[in-house]
Measured scan of single mutants.
Amino acid sequence: MAAAAAAGAGPEMVRGQVFDVGPRYTNLSYIGEGAYGMVCSAYDNVNKVRVAIKKISPFEHQTYCQRTLREIKILLRFRHENIIGINDIIRAPTIEQMKDVYIVQDLMETDLYKLLKTQHLSNDHICYFLYQILRGLKYIHSANVLHRDLKPSNLLLNTTCDLKICDFGLARVADPDHDHTGFLTEYVATRWYRAPEIMLNSKGYTKSIDIWSVGCILAEMLSNRPIFPGKHYLDQLNHILGILGSPSQEDLNCIINLKARNYLLSLPHKNKVPWNRLFPNADSKALDLLDKMLTFNPHKRIEVEQALAHPYLEQYYDPSDEPIAEAPFKFDMELDDLPKEKLKELIFEETARFQPGYRS
């Protein structure tokens, strides 16, 4: 834990890192770190609560700039109880001085990944967590956004079992017609939660990839272990087919990539493993919904509104309290091709509203 900075004593240090967030945020305490930044909790002297502050230093890398800009653009436009918001952003007053960006968010005690390492969940908890994931996802999908990296560590939890989806750095506007060349190379989302079509096709992607990830998360809540822990690309596919069985001819016809289709045709026939054999203690309604989410063919996979209306979630289902976005989200430009200098300018502009004396 960093010592509390005395008023006016300059930035606090946390594990050798400068955290320049005073005077409003003090009493910093280390939480963890990701690929390009550290997260601390801090005391907000204005709202009198502890908050989470993520320090991001992305400006050396085009990919990190892209992810940072995506996350900020999306989260500043989203407003939903099951999606983490941005409360404040701290950065230098000029673009030349801006080396880091500090993002202030609600402090959540833990995440689903940490929880599943230590606790076996009751059916009631599984049901409530799944409902909140789908409630947040309904809003995301209504904005025409794909999260693309749903996994237990991106689901934040607090002691009252509130759940918030975080990390929109890989999110995209849904565009089933656009052929994202190089899709697989830039697709760094965790393999275990990846839909089979991501490994088999490169053309376009749809909201059904997020539903697949939610199915993987439900299976993990039922058993405290990942359902498809593939060691590499082909191993991942083999794990999936080992449980779902061989795809039907109709399902194979959806695979545009001939090499991928021929690979699947070359494999020995596998039978589907019954879900109640894998999860003998699970609620039968939970397994019915799991089956509809972990469907090989993305066109037959359940959609988020149908999933919310499934009998497993009937005690929570309330369409009048499951809000959607006001308007579909649009990125003005494809960020993939922009140089990091341009992305830095866009991050600077996007964060201006939090600067003292800002006038829109």
Rank of each mutant, 00 (worst) to 15 (best):
D111R: 03
L200Q: 14
A325I: 03
P196G: 00
L76G: 02
K342F: 04
P268W: 06
S213K: 02
F168E: 02
H125F: 03
V21H: 06
A6D: 13
N276I: 14
P339M: 10
N257F: 12
L184E: 09
E33Q: 08
K340A: 10
T68A: 15
N87A: 00
V104G: 13
Y36Q: 14
R24L: 14
I83S: 00
D111L: 05
K73H: 07
D124M: 02
D288N: 14
N47D: 14
W275V: 05
A309K: 02
H147G: 01
S122P: 05
K300N: 15
S208R: 05
L184K: 05
P274K: 04
P319Y: 06
L222Y: 10
D100Q: 11
R261N: 01
S213H: 10
R135F: 02
E81R: 01
M293S: 02
V21S: 06
L241Y: 10
H80R: 00
S266N: 11
N276P: 02
F183P: 04
E220T: 01
H269C: 09
A327Y: 03
L278R: 08
L115H: 04
K99Y: 10
T94F: 08
A189L: 10
P23L: 11
P339G: 05
G230V: 14
D179E: 13
S223D: 10
I227G: 00
L265W: 04
D179T: 11
L264A: 08
R353T: 02
E12I: 06
S284P: 00
L69V: 07
G230L: 02
G22T: 01
P247N: 05
I255T: 00
Y64I: 15
D336M: 04
H180Q: 14
H141K: 08
I126Q: 11
E350N: 02
P323M: 06
K117N: 15
C254G: 00
K342C: 02
M199C: 07
G22F: 05
F329S: 02
E341L: 05
N123K: 15
Y193F: 14
A7E: 06
Q119V: 04
A307L: 07
S284Q: 12
E220P: 02
C40I: 10
L121V: 13
D124V: 14
T351L: 07
V21R: 07
W212C: 14
T110H: 09
N47Q: 10
L130N: 06
P339D: 08
A35Y: 12
Q62S: 14
P268D: 07
N238Y: 14
I90G: 02
L150H: 03
R77M: 04
K285Q: 11
F59T: 12
C161G: 00
R261S: 11
K164A: 06
Y30L: 05
S153M: 07
Q66D: 06
F129K: 08
A42T: 14
D210L: 05
N238A: 07
V145M: 12
I133W: 06
E303N: 04
I324W: 09
A52H: 03
